[in-house]
């Protein structure tokens, strides 16, 4: 039993020690990483404007929605992916190497962000008839439904989105941000 205890104790020390190490902060020197961090920040600012509008805590403002959607659209697709040259990682960057092993999906999500942002911009003046919630179906009865991630039910066609409630495009756009962050951003 003594051996058992000492191994357990050692494991506890290692776990505790592992938690004590963190990287010291340094200024980012890679221009691509610097630029994409600024790009993400701009999109975050746009989301910060959109969130209370779609949360219903400030009055709906179609012009503000359109302008924030345009900010995001202009930073989606290739405008975003060009700032992720293969292997561009650093201590400051939260990018995960999975970006380059699963580039096709990364690029697809960046494009989809553009479709949804374009759709939101077009839908900004529409009546708000749909809360953009998911729902319904059975687990396997509609296998596509259960396996699918939130947001995928919205049409990926900006023109179709532009005819719907702006909440549909907003939800799909927000969930695209989250899907990409889940797969490709380091969360510490």
């Amino acid at each position: 039993m003594i051996k058992l205890f000492s191994i357990g104790g050692l494991a506890a020390i290692l776990v505790t020690a592992g938690l004590a190490f963190t990287d010291p902060p340094r200024a980012e020197s890679d221009p691509d990483i610097k630029e994409r961090m600024a790009l993400m920040k701009d999109m975050g600012q746009a989301m910060r404007t959109l969130a209370p509008i779609f949360k219903g805590t400030v009055a709906y403002d179609a012009e503000a929605v359109r302008s924030a959607a345009e900010t995001i659209r202009a930073r989606s697709g290739k405008e975003m992916t060009r700032l992720f040259p293969e292997g561009s990682l650093s201590a400051q960057s939260e990018a995960l190497p999975a970006i380059w092993t699963d580039w096709e999906r990364f690029a697809m999500l960046a494009d989809e962000l553009g479709f949804y942002a374009t759709g939101l911009s077009a839908a900004a003046g529409n009546p708000r008839t749909d809360s953009g919630s998911q729902g319904g179906g059975t687990l396997g009865g509609q296998a596509a439904t259960l396996g699918e991630q939130a947001g995928e039910a919205a049409p990926k066609d900006p023109e179709a989105l532009g005819k719907l409630s702006p909440d549909v495009a907003f939800s799909a756009m927000a969930q695209t941000c989250g899907t990409c962050h889940t797969s490709f951003r380091k969360d510490d």
Binding site: M43, G44, Q45, A46, M47, R48, T49, L50, A51, F54, F170, S171, A174, Q175, C177, G178, C180, H181, T182, S183, F184, R185, D187
Partner: peptide, 11 residues
């Protein structure tokens, strides 16, 4: 939506 008050999307 995954969106936080600061405008970040949770991953």
């Amino acid at each position: 939506t995954g969106v936080t008050p600061s405008g970040d999307a949770l991953g």
